[in-house]
């Protein structure tokens, strides 16, 4: 669904990313991990087409990212930014409905999708509230509903990029958002999520991509990637890795 081959990126003179190869298919959640400055934001920017790679290629649904007409690409690729600077008093429903902008599916279908997306991220009760009156966590969920509605009907060929979606959320809503990412994968989307929390990544992602100094340090299942030695090497922290008592995923104890 989303294919990255030999990707290199430069910012100024610095080579920020080198020889990145990976692939995310429909139905899969890939978590991108790494320390601050490892190149996560640069990777995300090159996956959204905002940054032109200096070498290598990014393909969305079998077609080079740059070759997609903007509207058609927007119907298949949605991006949730870390934060948004919206300073106008839109209602919550209006913000979520902006996700339907690239579509020409008609008011009725748009409304239905917007309702479902708001229900999925638990913001239905805020529908008529002004966006400006919401808390940081509520705003984040509203934007998630917006990007969900953008690729709601793109099952099988869509891709969802989430940039640290849980950073301003409480415990319950962190789980809710990542469960939603899983559900969207189950509906046939390829999901890439940048995360800081290793345990959340281990619990919700099928595969992890560990970036270190601009290169792929490790790519594989949570059990493959999250070893004691590798975490010590990349993050500089000595941890214990146990089996999660309730499910088959590693549990990292600092």
């Amino acid at each position: 669904m989303l294919l990255v081959e030999g990707l290199c990126c430069e910012r100024g003179r610095n080579k920020v990313l080198r020889d990145i190869d990976f692939k995310v298919v429909a139905g899969e959640v890939l978590a991108v991990l790494g320390t601050n400055g490892a190149g996560k934001s640069t990777l995300l920017a090159s996956l959204t087409g905002e940054l032109t790679p200096s070498a290598g290629r990014v393909e969305l649904a079998g077609r080079a990212l740059a070759d997609w007409p903007p509207l058609e690409r927007a119907r298949r690729l949605a991006v949730l930014p870390q934060s948004s600077s919206l300073a106008f008093a839109f209602s919550v429903t209006e913000v979520v409905a902006m996700g339907r902008l690239p579509h020409a599916s008609g008011q009725q279908q748009d409304d239905a999708i917007v309702m479902q997306a708001m229900h999925a991220t638990d913001v239905s009760h805020l529908a008529t509230r002004s966006y400006l009156s919401l808390s940081g966590g509520e705003r984040q969920r509203v934007h998630l509903a917006r990007v969900l509605s953008q690729v709601w009907d793109a099952a099988g060929q869509g891709c969802l990029l989430l940039d640290e979606p849980t950073s301003s959320l409480d415990l319950a809503h962190q789980q809710l958002i990542l469960q939603q990412a899983r559900d969207m994968a189950a509906r046939g989307l390829a999901v890439i999520v940048v995360l800081h929390d290793l345990n959340l990544a281990a619990r919700y992602a099928d595969r992890l991509l560990l970036l270190h100094q601009g290169r792929v340090r490790s790519l594989g299942t949570p059990w493959d990637v999250l070893s004691v030695e590798r975490i010590a090497e990349v993050f500089g922290v000595v941890v214990q890795v146990e089996k999660h008592p309730l499910q088959d995923s590693p549990l990292i104890i600092v």
Partner: peptide, 20 residues
């Protein structure tokens, strides 16, 4: 009007929504 709405989200966000 629609492009302006999207632009209020931020330029990158508008681009992600397919706005030129």
């Amino acid at each position: 009007a629609k492009a302006l709405n999207a632009l209020l989200l931020g330029e990158s966000e508008a681009r992600h929504l397919g706005v030129d």
